[in-house]
Amino acid sequence: MNGYNFAYLDEQTKRMIRRALLKAVAIPGYQVPFGGREMPMPYGWGTGGMQLTASILGVDDVLKVIDQGADDTTNAVSIRAFFERVAGVETTTVTPAASVIQTRHRIPETPLEPGQILVFQVPIPEPLRFIEPSEQETRLMHALEEYGVMHVKLYEDIARHGHIATTYAYPVKVDGRYVMDPSPIPKFDNPKLDMSPALLLFGAGREKRLYAIPPYTHVESLDFEDHPFEIQRWDERCALCASDRSFLDEVITDDAGGRMFVCSDTDYCLTRRGELS
C-alpha cells in the first residue's frame, strides 16, 4: 500500500515487538510490557493481535482471521482485509492451510499443527485484574507467585453456586509458574492450550502487554481436587453438521422461542458438511 511499510508497522516498531516476543517465549505466560502503537483501528478491536501479526507476517505466510470462531464476522473480515491491503499476503479460511491465524475469542476446532502460529487478541491481559485493579499490586503478586486470591475467588463461586462461575477467560497456569489469562476464549477451548503443537502468541494493544505459550508447554486450568475443571457441554448437536464435539452458538430462529445450535467454528462446520455430502 502506498505510503506505508509492508504490514503497516515501521521496521523499528517491528523490531521492538520482535525482541519482546522472544522474551515472551522465553518466559512462558509472563506478560512482557511493549511500546504498543496506535493502529488505524480502535483499541479493543484487536490492535494488540494485529501488531503481533504485523511483526511476524511475511510474504510467504497464509493468514486466517477469525472472530467468535467464524471467518465471516465483520471484525474478522475487516482485519483480514487490512492485511490483504497492507501486506498483500494470501489469506484463507481453511484452518490447516493457514500458517498464521489471528483470533478473537476462539481456538479452532481442527487441531493445530506444528509450525502454525495462533495470535490471540487480548482485551485485559491481567488475570488478577478483576480481583486487584492496581497494576503495581498485580505485578508484585506475579513476582511473588502469590496466587491465593485467585483460588479464593474461584472457591467463592463454588460456595455460592456449586460451580466455578467463570465460563470464559478462565485462568490457567503455564508450566507450573505464571497464572495467565488465555484471553476471553470459552473454557471449552482451554484444554487445547495444553501441549499444543502450535506456538500461541497473545497481544493486548491498549494495555501494551504481550505474552506467549511455546509449543508443547504444560498449561493447566486452575481448579480444586473436589471441583475439577470441566468444559461446557451441550445436549444438542450442530444443526448443520451434526457435530457433538464442537462449541455451539445458539441461534434464535423465530419470535416464539425457537432456537437452534450451530458450530461457532465456521470452517470446521463447512468442512464437515462437505465431507458428509
Partner: peptide, 27 residues
C-alpha cells in the same frame, strides 16, 4: 484508548455470551 475499549462492546460476543447462558441455565 477509552473510546476504543468502550465501543468494542459492539463487537460480537456470541461465544462468551453462550458460555454464560449455558452456566446460567445449569445454575
Amino acid at each position: 484508548e477509552a473510546s476504543g475499549f468502550v465501543s468494542h462492546l459492539k463487537l460480537p460476543h456470541y461465544v462468551d455470551f453462550q458460555s454464560e447462558l449455558e452456566l446460567l441455565r445449569r445454575l
